[in-house]
Write a protein that binds this DNA or RNA. Structure first.
Length: 530
RNA sequence: GCCCCUAUCGUCUAACGGUUAGGACGCCACCCUUUCAAGGUGGAAACAGGAGUUCGAUUCUCCUUAGGGGCACCA
C-alpha cells in the first residue's frame, strides 16, 4: 500500500522556523515539548513557547458562505477567525460567495452577508462588493475557470466522464444502504474510453465529471489543530467535480478558487474534514501547493448537537434585534475555543487580533452559552459612555426623545443586559402603566397612610418641580418628620408614578416624566386609593 | 453499517508529568441598598471508565464508553 505524504503547505522559511511557523511538521513525530495530544500526532510547538511567526508569503484567509438564507452565528464565528488571523499577520481577508448550487440560492442572502459582516465590523478586503485583483468573487461568475481546469484534468486522465442518471445513482445508493455497505459510486463509467465518452457528449448526452480516486492508498491530511489525519482512499467516493449543468461542485470550486485567490490558510468547519482528502488529491492532480488547513469545531446547542435553529437562536439577526452589541458578541465568540493568555474575559477585538493564533484553538465544539453572552453584553453596555450608548439605544426606543434617552442612559445601563430590555424598563416614560390599587399598599400600609405619603409627595413636587436634589432633600425630610419607613415611602411613590415595583431610582426617573405628568399620575394613584 | 474528530465544574475554559486542579458565566449565602440592578465578600461545583508507561499521571500510549461530524450532480 502506497502512502501519500501529506502535501506541503505553501513555501516556508527553511530551518528551525518551519515547525514554529506551521505549528506542525509533516510526517515527523516530535518528541519532547508540545501540546501533549498534538505532539503525539504531528508535533505541535507549544503555543506559549513558540517562536515568532514568520511567513514569507502574505497571509490570506477567506470567508466563503453560500447565499442560501440568513446569516448564521456560526458564520460570524468563522468570519471572525478568518479576519483576526489575517489581520494579525497584516494579510488579506477575502469574502467569496459560493453560489454553485442553483437550487438553494436565495437572492437576498448575499446582501444579508454584507450587512452582517458590516455590523460585526468584519469588513473584507476583497469581495464581490469591493472587488479585488483575484475576482470575480462570486463562483457563479467563474464557471469558465472551473471548466478549464476540469478539461485539464480530463486531459491528464485524473477525472472521467460519467453518464449515470441521478435515478441510477439513487437506486445504487439505496441498494448499498440496504446491504449496509458504504454508499459509493460503482465506477461504472470509469470503464468508458475517452473517445467513446466524447462521442456520447457530442450526441448530446448529459454528463458529469468525476475524479479518479486511487485504490489502496492512505491519504494524509495535515490539519493545523489535529495534526496528520489519514484516510483510506478505498473509502473515498469518485467525487463529482463538474455537474451536469456545467457548475462545479464545492470540491472543485474550492480548490481552484483558494489556489487562484492565493489563500494561505483555509479555516473552515469540522464538517469539511472528511472531504479534505479529496481536496488533497485535487491539489496533487493540479500540482498546486496546499494551503494550511484548519478545521474548527462547530458551535453546539446545549444538547451538544450542531447549533441549529431548532434549539436556539442561530440567526445573527436575532442577536441584533435583541440588542447585543457587536463588540460584546465578538468578545464572547472569541472565548469559544480560545482563551486570553492572562485569563481575561473582557478585552477589545484589537487585543484579540493581536493575541489570537489559530494554533491555540481548541478542537472541541463549544456550547453556546447565551447567559454568558448576556452578562458580557451587560458589561459592555455599562462600560459605554452615555452619549455613545444613546446612539445604540435609539432604535430600541423609537417613542422616546433623544434628550430623554440621554437622561435615562445612566439610570438603565446597570439594569439591562440587552438594548431591547431598555424598552421594557422605560415603559413608564411614554405611557401610564396600569396597575392594581393593591400594589400601592406596600408592606401592609393602609389606604390612609399610603394616601398621606402621596399627598405630601405631590405637594413637594408641586412646590419644587422636578428638581432631583431638592426633592431628594424634601422627601428625606418628610420621611423623618412623619416617621415613615424609608423603603415604604419610596415604593409607594415608585408604584404611583411608574405603575410597577421595579424601576430605576425613582427620584432620578421623575425628569423622564416631567412635572405635569408626575402630578397627574399622583392624582390617579390617589383616586385609586379613595 | 463504515470512516474521521473529540473528552477538566451545569456551561466557556487554564493546566504542557509533581498544583489545596485556577479563572469566568450561572447558582447559593452574606454585605451594600428607597425597588431592581450594579458592586463587594464567601461557598457548592470537574480531571468519563479501565489497562499500561513512569518514582509519579488530568497531562503520554492503548482499549472501552460517550458526544460530535461525514459518507449527494448541497455547501
Amino acid at each position: 500500500m502506497k502512502l501519500t505524504p501529506a502535501p506541503e503547505s505553501p513555501t516556508f522559511q527553511h530551518g528551525d522556523e518551519w515547525q514554529s511557523v506551521w505549528g506542525f511538521r509533516c510526517g515527523v513525530s516530535s518528541p519532547g515539548k508540545g501540546k501533549p495530544r498534538a505532539s503525539a500526532r504531528g508535533g505541535f510547538t507549544s503555543p506559549r513557547n513558540r517562536k515568532k511567526d514568520l511567513f514569507d508569503f502574505p497571509v490570506r484567509t477567506r470567508f466563503a458562505p453560500s447565499p442560501t438564507g440568513f446569516v448564521h452565528i456560526g458564520n460570524i464565528y468563522g468570519a471572525m477567525l478568518d479576519y483576526a488571523f489575517a489581520k494579525k499577520h497584516k494579510g488579506g481577508f477575502i469574502l467569496r460567495i459560493e453560489d454553485t448550487d442553483q437550487k438553494r440560492r436565495v437572492d437576498e442572502a448575499e446582501e444579508k452577508i454584507y450587512q452582517g459582516l458590516k455590523w460585526a465590523g468584519l469588513v473584507p478586503d476583497e469581495s464581490p462588493e469591493h472587488g479585488g485583483k483575484y475576482g470575480p468573487y462570486r463562483q457563479s461568475e467563474r464557471l469558465e475557470i472551473y471548466q478549464k481546469y476540469a478539461r485539464q484534468l480530463v486531459d491528464q486522465g485524473d477525472v472521467y466522464y460519467c453518464f449515470c442518471t441521478p435515478k441510477r445513482l439513487e437506486e445504487l445508493r439505496q441498494e448499498q444502504k440496504r446491504k449496509k455497505r458504504l454508499p459509493k459510486y460503482d465506477r461504472l463509467c470509469r470503464k468508458i474510453s475517452k473517445k467513446e465518452a466524447e462521442q456520447r457528449i457530442k450526441n448530446g448526452e448529459k454528463y458529469v465529471i468525476r475524479m479518479k480516486v486511487p485504490d489502496n492508498e492512505k491519504i494524509a491530511v495535515n490539519d493545523l489543530l489535529r495534526g496528520k489525519v489519514v484516510f483510506e482512499s478505498n473509502l473515498i467516493d469518485d467525487q463529482v467535480l463538474l455537474k451536469a449543468d456545467g457548475f462545479p461542485t464545492y470540491h472543485l470550486a474550492v480548490v481552484v478558487d483558494d489556489h487562484l485567490m492565493k489563500i494561505s490558510h483555509i479555516i473552515r468547519g469540522e464538517e469539511w474534514l472528511s472531504s479534505a482528502p479529496k481536496h488533497v488529491l485535487l491539489y496533487r492532480y493540479l500540482n498546486w501547493q496546499m494551503p494550511v488547513l484548519i478545521h474548527t469545531a462547530n458551535l453546539r446547542n446545549p444538547d451538544r448537537s450542531k447549533m441549529s435553529k431548532r434549539h436556539g437562536h442561530t440567526s445573527l439577526d436575532w442577536y441584533i434585534d435583541q440588542g447585543f452589541l457587536p463588540e460584546a458578541l465578538l468578545n464572547f465568540l472569541s472565548l469559544l475555543g480560545w482563551s486570553h493568555p492572562e485569563e481575561k474575559e473582557i478585552f477589545s477585538f484589537d487585543q484579540f487580533v493581536k493575541l489570537f493564533d489559530l494554533k491555540d484553538l481548541s478542537p472541541v465544539g463549544p456550547v453556546f452559552d447565551l447567559k454568558k453572552l448576556e452578562w458580557m453584553n451587560g458589561v459592555y453596555i455599562r462600560n459605554k459612555a452615555d452619549a455613545d450608548l444613546v446612539e445604540f439605544l435609539k432604535p430600541f426606543l423609537p417613542e422616546v426623545a433623544k434628550d430623554k434617552i440621554l437622561t435615562a442612559a445612566p439610570l438603565i445601563k446597570e439594569r439591562i443586559k440587552t438594548l431591547k430590555e431598555a424598552s421594557e424598563i422605560l415603559e413608564f416614560v411614554t405611557r401610564k402603566v396600569d396597575y392594581s390599587p393593591d400594589l400601592l399598599l406596600v408592606k401592609g400600609l393602609t389606604k390612609e397612610s399610603a394616601g398621606q405619603m402621596l399627598e405630601k409627595a405631590k405637594a413637594a413636587v408641586d412646590k419644587y418641580g422636578i428638581d432631583v436634589e431638592k426633592l431628594q432633600k424634601e422627601f428625606l425630610k418628610l420621611i423623618k418628620d412623619n416617621n415613615w419607613n424609608t423603603g415604604n415611602f419610596f415604593m409607594v411613590l415608585r408604584t404611583a408614578v411608574c405603575g410597577k415595583k421595579i424601576t430605576p431610582p425613582i427620584i432620578e426617573s421623575l425628569p423622564l416624566i416631567g412635572k405635569g405628568e408626575t402630578l397627574s399620575r399622583l392624582d390617579l394613584a390617589l383616586s385609586k386609593l379613595s
